[in-house]
Design a protein around this nucleic acid. Structure first.
Lengths: 335, 335
DNA sequence: CTGAAAGCGCTTACAG
DNA sequence: CTGAAAGCGCTTACAG
C-alpha cells in the first residue's frame, strides 16, 4: 500500500500543506470553498494522517494509557475493555498496559510518558495510598477508577468509585438482618485507603454497631482469582465450620469459595449464605446465582472517560462516588 | 518532567547524535569505550527514546496490533492478554483493538496501518474465509490465532490453531463411547473454513461414521456469550427433552447451557452430559466442573508471537496445528 | 484567509 | 569508528 501524505493532498487540492493541516485540524480560519476542496481530495485519496508525525511536532500524543494491575480480575478486565470501547468513540486512543499485581504502576507510567508522551492515564486496581507525592509530581491528567482518591491533592487527578465502605456495611446489614452472626470474610484487609480494604472495614463497622464480635479466625487474605478464593475458603473450612455466611470482596473470589464449599459437601445457601462484590456477568450464571453488590461498570467506564477528557482539557479533577446496589441472586437465605 | 533528548545525551557524552543513535540501536560499528560512555550518560539522565520520532523516520513503527472480534469471549480476551504480556517481554508493543463481532477486521487494519504504520497484526476471532484476496493485498505480517489459515497464500501470513475438526470428532467419540446417541449441539455452523464450524463438522463426521443420524432439531445457533448459551439451550429444551448430551463450541456457551439445564430441573451429568471447548479457568470452577476440550492458551500465545516476530523479520509464514486435549471434569457420565 | 519556513526528535546514507 | 546533513510527515508561529 502506497502511503498518501499531506503533501499529496496539498498538491492535488492546489493549496499549501499548511492549509491542508488547518482543514484537517478543524481550524476556523479557512475559506469554506477551500475546506470543501481539500476534504474532497482527502476522501478521494483515502488520506489518513500519520499519527507519529503529528504527535512528534505536538510534543504530546493522542495516546492515553489504561494501566491495569492484575489480569485475572474479571471485573477490572471487563472495565478496561469498556473504557477502551468508549475511548474509541470519543477519539481517545488508549494503550493498555497490563502489569503484575505486585508491580509499580507509577514506574510504568513514568517510562510510558517518556517513551510515548502520554496525554492521560487511567489507573485500574491501583492503590495510591502512600504514593501521594509521587502521583502529584507526575503532572499528567489521570483518573483512578474503582477507588476513592479524593485525598490526592493534584488538580490533574480524578477518581470514580462506588462507596466501598458503605457497600461493606450494606452487605453486613443484609446478612445480620437475616439472622447471620458468624460471618466469614475473604479478601484483602490492609490499608484503610485501599478500596477493597474499605469494603471489609465497612463490614466490621456494621458488626460493631450491632454488638457482634469480629472473629479473626473467620478471615482469610485472598487475591482476586478463582483459585485464591477456593483455597482461602478451604483454609477457613479446615479450622472452622461454625460460620453461616461468607462475604467476599469480589465475585471471582466468591465463585472460588462456592466451589470449595461444594467440594466440602456444604450447600449454598442451605448451609452457608454467600455474598460477592462487583456484579460480573458470570455471577448470574453460577448455580445458585450469586447475590452480589454491583459496581455499575458501564457507568464507571463512562465517567472515567468523561473525567479524563475534562482533565486533558485543563479542567480541575473531580472525585465521583456512586452507590453500590444489590443484585439479588439465590446464594443468601434467612437463618 | 523535562524531557531528555538524544541531543542532551550527545552533548553530555561528547559525541555526535549519530553515535548516540548507533549505540541506542545496538549497531556493531561503535567503539566499545564510546559505547560505555554513552550508555552511562543514558542511564544517568534516564533517557528514553521518543518512539514517535524514531517511528517517523523509520516509516514504520514498533507497533503491532491485536485485533479482537467480540469482547465477551473469555477465551479470546484471555488469549489477547497473554499475547500482550509476551509481546511486552519480547519488545513488541501491541495495540489492542477490540471490535464488534460483526465489524470488518480488515477495514480496521487498513485504517490502523495508514494511521500508525503497523509492523504486524494478530487476528483473534477473525474468519478469513472469503477474504483471501483482501488479506493477501494487505502486505503486513500477520498471524491468525485459533484458526487454520493455511489456505491463504501470502508469505506474510501465518496461523496457529488447534485442530478443530479433529477435536470435534474427539468430543463426539467420547460421548458415543459412553453410550450417548442423541447429542445436542450449541454453536455456530456456518462456513467450513470457520474454526468453530469445523468443531461441529467434526462432530457430524463422527456421528456419520457411527451410523448415528444427525437431528437438526437438536442444534441451535449461538454466539460466544453466557446469555446466548443460556437462551439457545432454552430453545432446545422448549421443543425436546430426549437428548442425553450437549456439545458446545465454547466453555462460555456451556456455562450458560449448564445454568439453563439447572433452571429446567435437569442435573448435569445426571440427566444430561455436557462438553465444552476452550479450557478457560472458569470451567474448572463450575459445579460440576466442566469437561472440555482444552486449547492450550499459553502455547498458542507463545507461538503467535514467535510467528509474528519471524514474519516481521522477513521469514516465510507458517501454519501450526496443535492437538486439543481433554480436560476432565465432572460434567459427563456413562449412560 | 493563505503560504513559506522552521522545527519536533530521531535515523540513515554518505563521506572521511 | 565517527560526524555533518538530509529528511521522515506533520504543526505552528510569522508575515502578508
Amino acid at each position: 500500500m502506497r502511503i498518501v501524505t499531506i503533501r499529496d493532498v496539498a498538491k492535488e487540492a492546489q493549496v499549501s500543506i499548511s492549509t491542508v493541516s488547518r482543514v484537517l485540524n478543524g481550524r476556523p480560519d479557512v475559506d469554506e470553498t477551500t475546506r470543501q476542496r481539500v476534504m474532497d481530495v482527502v476522501d478521494r485519496l483515502h488520506y489518513v494522517r500519520n499519527a507519529n508525525a503529528a504527535n512528534l511536532k505536538q510534543r504530546h500524543t493522542d495516546f492515553a494509557a489504561v494501566v491495569l494491575k492484575g489480569r485475572r480480575n474479571l471485573f477490572l478486565t471487563d472495565l478496561a475493555e469498556r473504557i477502551l470501547a468508549i475511548g474509541r468513540k470519543t477519539g481517545i486512543r488508549f494503550l493498555i498496559e497490563i502489569i503484575d499485581e505486585k508491580a509499580d504502576e507509577f514506574d510504568t507510567v513514568r517510562a510510558l510518558y517518556r517513551e510515548r508522551k502520554l496525554t492521560g492515564v487511567v489507573y485500574l486496581g491501583s492503590n495510591p495510598g502512600g504514593h501521594e507525592k509521587e502521583i502529584e509530581k507526575l503532572e499528567i491528567p489521570c483518573v483512578f477508577a474503582t477507588i476513592e482518591a479524593a485525598f490526592l491533592k493534584g488538580e490533574h487527578i480524578s477518581s470514580v468509585s462506588v462507596n466501598n465502605f458503605e457497600a461493606g456495611q450494606k452487605a453486613a446489614k443484609r446478612l445480620i438482618g437475616l439472622g447471620h452472626q458468624r460471618i466469614a470474610l475473604l479478601g484483602y484487609f490492609a490499608p484503610q485507603s485501599n478500596s477493597t480494604g474499605q469494603r471489609l472495614h465497612g463490614v466490621l463497622e456494621c458488626l460493631r454497631r450491632h454488638g457482634i464480635p469480629y472473629d479473626e479466625a473467620l478471615y482469610e487474605e485472598c487475591d482476586f482469582t478463582l483459585p485464591a478464593g477456593y483455597e482461602a475458603m478451604g483454609r477457613i473450612l479446615a479450622r472452622r465450620r461454625d460460620f453461616t455466611a461468607v462475604f467476599c470482596i469480589s465475585d471471582v473470589i466468591a465463585m472460588g469459595a462456592m466451589k470449595a464449599l461444594s467440594d466440602h459437601g456444604l450447600s449454598v445457601p442451605g448451609d452457608v449464605s454467600l455474598i460477592g462484590f462487583d456484579g460480573i456477568e458470570q455471577a448470574a450464571y453460577c448455580t445458585p446465582s450469586l447475590t452480589t453488590l454491583c459496581q455499575p461498570a458501564g457507568e464507571i467506564a463512562e465517567i472515567t472517560v468523561e473525567l479524563l477528557t475534562a482533565s486533558m482539557r485543563g479542567q480541575k479533577g473531580r472525585h465521583v462516588l456512586l452507590p453500590a446496589q444489590f443484585t439479588e441472586g439465590g446464594s443468601v437465605r434467612r437463618l
